[in-house]
Design a protein around this nucleic acid. Structure first.
Lengths: 332, 332
DNA sequence: TTGTACGCGTTATCAG
DNA sequence: CTGATAACGCGTACAA
């Protein structure tokens, strides 16, 4: 292991001179600078990152905490975080929070191995978050928590649910079913809330027979749809609380020889990659993932800079029109 | 920032006692142990990870270097790496190698911030790899490089190409086209090699009109397929060098009213998630990604332990039978 | 149990 | 203005 000492010895200067040189201090003459640099190159010297971080008590890296490194998380969101991090000259590392409070993610936070963190890891408890927030700036993307030192960016799910429903209503649908995610999912219940609000604003009666609870999976969507089909009186349209369930639903319709969108319109939520590949391509609600990620990273840097900022940010959704919704107002 | 000193003061013991206690040394009496632990809790003390790493010159974390954190990399592979890493009591972090030699990934390697690395980052040059391999154990998953200190695990693409082709031949196909990836792709050319070998071994003449170069994208596969259709004499089957191109091909067939597999059989390569969602589901070649990841991580730990191991490992592929290949030997 | 010499760079301070 | 000396960051582990 070659250290700064070795370089100093070879260059015939003191340790501090080497350090100054390598950090481009102007106080070093060109000649010694050259000597030192050559020595460093010759020995293939690389500073020990820890020693450096320890001394400056600053790591120049921020972490992205994910519930599972191998999970199918939002790549656009990561892109957003990455872009901002890089453009601020910081490094980004991703850690998994598998294991909760014992996880690598939490460890990196509490041991001050990073200068800040963007968090998308529902398996870390609120308490742990509060704890960590005391020592390092963090921005949450996966929950709503109104506490000192907790900053978060939220995608407005109520608005998204409202948009989806209104989109169907605008196209002449009035019998609209809602297939929800698991009962304990905040996201799903906010989307449902938006659905109800839209119905109400358009004076459409809510019918409980068209509310089905499912579980955010393809199979769940399939079963929920079969159930809906089995009931007398199919709705004109179905709003699935996520795309996977919508895809399961499309399969159920295919098996039942019901055509989408001719016989029934459907709309999903998320705009996952698959949504563009189904046949027909799925109309859905896109969340501004890139924006959420980049905003989160921006906030981190403002916090690092010691600026005072709001604790809560809300982003809007966008509808992605594809081909699973029929416009009942036009002739065809 | 509360340090070990604060804890020592509060507990009324020396710094070293605190350190021993917190590291569960048996040399500390139960009573002081309790006092120290209480003090640590009261102050909410967490050790500074760097100081610790610096002293022990060991980080207990290994890195997974990816060409792009937001890229659609192999989640199963990551799972493999993660499982082994965790079960060895190490932490895993993922770093991006965007920026090549200046990237976070390379920096973490050279600054000794990790004890080892599994690498899947084609945008890091061979030279940089050789350089890094001197200071830290690394295992490559994305290239073949026969050099001292370079360990790698390879998935046998020649064998995969051979299997795919033979699978078609076994089912009665003899006119088999190959849609390749970009000319500079090693993976693609190995798969092609396997294709040629299989044809030869089964005494089937190779026909250059059935070799089309494309680019691993859906659009590329679409165009290549259109070209094949435009040519007089469609083959009985097409082997696409990756699944995305096969999916593009399926679209081309749909537009041309050719049915898969009734009119033409197709087989892909990779077994991407989408492959199971196409209609009909795509028959393809699966690479043992989980195994590759976990093997790579295993090797890292053997290297860390100072064991002497082989430098080159090769894994086999597996065929995933779905519904895009027709068996011409049976009546239907 | 405790004192203390490390690990390796950074930077304030001082001498030339 | 250049370069060297030394304290320091925080925890670890050996000698006492």
């Amino acid at each position: 292991m070659t250290t700064i000492k070795d370089v100093a010895k070879l260059a015939g200067v003191s340790i501090s001179t080497v350090s100054y040189t390598l950090n481009n201090s102007p106080r070093i003459s060109a000649s010694t600078k050259k000597r030192v640099e050559e020595a460093a190159k010759a020995l293939n010297y690389k500073k020990n990152g820890f020693a450096s971080d320890l001394k400056r008590s600053k790591t120049n890296t921020i972490a992205l905490l994910l519930s599972d490194l191998s999970g199918p998380y939002y790549s656009e969101l990561i892109q957003g975080v990455q872009d901002i991090t890089t453009s601020n000259g910081y490094d980004l590392i991703a850690c998994s929070s598998i294991g909760g409070a014992q996880s690598t993610a939490v460890k990196f936070l509490s041991e001050k191995r990073v200068d800040g963190a963007v968090i998308l890891a529902h398996n870390i408890s609120d308490e742990t978050m509060l704890e960590s927030a005391k020592s390092v700036p963090i921005v949450l993307l996966d929950r709503i928590l109104d506490e000192e030192h907790i900053y978060l960016v939220e995608v407005d799910n109520i608005e998204g649910g409202y948009h989806a429903t209104e989109y169907l209503i605008d196209r002449g649908h009035s019998q609209i079913a809602f297939v929800s995610g698991p009962a304990d999912s905040h996201d799903s219940s906010f989307r449902y809330q938006g659905y109800r609000n839209a119905l109400q604003d358009h004076h459409i009666d809510y019918q409980s027979k068209w509310y089905i609870t499912s579980n955010f999976t393809k199979e769940g969507g399939y079963r929920a749809t079969k159930l809906l089909i089995a009931q007398q009186g199919l709705p004109q349209a179905i709003f699935y609380a996520n795309d996977e369930m919508a895809i399961g639903g499309m399969q159920a319709f295919r098996e039942t020889n019901l055509r989408v969108p001719e016989d029934i319109s459907i709309i999903g939520y998320d705009d996952i990659q698959l949504a563009d590949y189904t046949s027909p391509p799925l109309t859905t609600i896109r969340q501004p993932k890139y924006e959420a990620g980049s905003l989160a990273a921006h906030l981190i840097f403002q916090l690092i800079a010691g600026e005072k900022i709001d604790r809560h940010y809300k982003l809007s959704t966008e509808i992605i029109e594809r081909q699973t919704v029929k416009d009942l107002n036009t002739f065809s």
